[in-house]
Every structure is written in structure tokens, then in C-alpha cells.
């Protein structure tokens, strides 16, 4: 199984909030793709797809900008196996739900290496250990 890349390589970020949070991780398997020295960002959107897979779990969301334009973002999490052991399943998130994620921005494209995922304003929460 190959996961498609984000369609727009250089989109204008639609960031609803930017938080000045110091980086907490020295490294991660996604280092080539994310700037772990940047300030963490927070994005909110509506779930399009939940990919509950290894080596990393992905949530694809639509994020609406102030002008009404919608952009697709990809939220990357830890491995499926690690999330399984915290009670998550492939049915934990469904299309149409609202997700707010905080983490490190991708070097390019609309991506976040997430430190925290909040589903439907708190009905389900995941935080990196």
C-alpha cells in the first residue's frame, strides 16, 4: 500500500492558530519531513480520511480558511501499534468529525507531525508519550 502525497506541494498555509511552544522532541522518524525546531502549530478541520496504519497513522482533514477556501492537510501521528495499545481502533475517527491537532509543521506542504490530537472538542484525545 502506498499513500498518496499531498496534492498541493506549495500551498498557502491555513493555520487557525500558531502556538509558541518549545520543541520537546530531539528526533523522530519523520525528521526529513518536519521542522522539529519550528514553533508548533495548531490546525482544525473536518476529517476526510483516517488511515490507521504503520509505521504512522494519518488523518486527512479539510481546513477552511477565513476566505472560505478549503485546503487539505495531513496530520501524522505515531504507529498504529502504539495507538492500539492506548485503546484506539480504525473506527476511533470517522469522516465528518472535527479534529484539532497541534504539532510541528512540514517543511513543505500542508502537514503536521502531531503532538496532540483532539477529536470533536475533547471526546477523544491523543497525546504523544
Amino acid at each position: 500500500m502506498r499513500i498518496p502525497a499531498i496534492a498541493t506541494p506549495f500551498p498557502i498555509p491555513v493555520i487557525l492558530a500558531v502556538l509558541a511552544v518549545a520543541p520537546v522532541r530531539a528526533h523522530h522518524s519523520s525528521v526529513p519531513w518536519y521542522d522539529l525546531n519550528a514553533d508548533q502549530i495548531t490546525v482544525s478541520g473536518v476529517v476526510k480520511e483516517f488511515q490507521f496504519i504503520n509505521p504512522h497513522v494519518y488523518i486527512i482533514i479539510d481546513v477552511a480558511g477565513a476566505d472560505g477556501a478549503v485546503e487539505e492537510w495531513r496530520l501524522e501521528s505515531t504507529s498504529r501499534n502504539r495507538m492500539v495499545r492506548t485503546g484506539w481502533t480504525e473506527d476511533s475517527i470517522k469522516p465528518g468529525q472535527t479534529v484539532t491537532a497541534t504539532g510541528f509543521p512540514a517543511w513543505k506542504g500542508n502537514g503536521v507531525d502531531t503532538e496532540e490530537i483532539i477529536v470533536d472538542h475533547g471526546t477523544l484525545v491523543w497525546r504523544r508519550e
Binding site: 502525497a5 509505521p55 506542504g109
Partner: peptide, 14 residues
């Protein structure tokens, strides 16, 4: 309480 789980790695394109 754990057992090893299959990993079934998926190649990711960025």
C-alpha cells in the same frame, strides 16, 4: 498484558 502485534509496514510518500 502485552503480545507482539504484526507491523505490516506501509511505504509512505511525502
Amino acid at each position: 498484558d502485552w503480545e507482539l502485534l504484526p507491523f505490516e509496514c506501509n511505504v509512505t510518500e511525502y
